[in-house]
Amino acid sequence: MMKKIIFGLAIAATTLAACNSNSNKSTESQNRSKDTQAKSQTDNATITTSSVADAKNTISIKEIVSTYLQLKNALTRDNTTDAATAGTTLEAAFKNFDKTALTAAQKKTFEDVEDDAREHAEHIGKNGGNIVHQREHFVILSNDIYDLVKTFGGGQVLYKVFCPMYNNGKGAFWISETKEIKNPYLGKAMPTCGEIKEELK
């Protein structure tokens, strides 16, 4: 029995230590993303309004889409920190979106997408430094944004671009504001993989 207790204590000590270092890391990266967020607020006027903590009911679909595009562009540059910042901003944008003007059917679509997309945006925000995992979430997030644009329009001309090489040959698509191909999944390693499948107006 004594042996078991000592063994248990030893494990407890190691797991506790492991847990601590973990949570430190996440607060540290949160702080870091707050800093960068503050910086990008001054850089970019559209974001300034959207990421103010309690600026409720000021977000439009166009702003959600433009934040998604910032995230996409950060990933094309392999920039995991900017991607995390955009992810956090995107989560806030979904949270602060004004649903009051929507019809009941539109509201249902929006909430269905929001429920899923917010979690992906949140995880992308929390995983600065782990671009592989950010890109995994970006696959499904792109699907969500596509459905959103199909229902509400994107406020600008957009393209659905598909690259068959990512994800073990299963491929994945993303939404782009330009016809020029810059791949957010493969980044600088293979920037031009992609083909425009659809124009969304």
Partner: peptide, 15 residues
């Protein structure tokens, strides 16, 4: 979970 979430979760499980 909504159908959308079910697909999303199965994707995350594989990943």
């Amino acid at each position: 979970y909504s159908p959308r979430r079910q697909l999303s979760k199965l994707n995350a499980i594989a990943n």
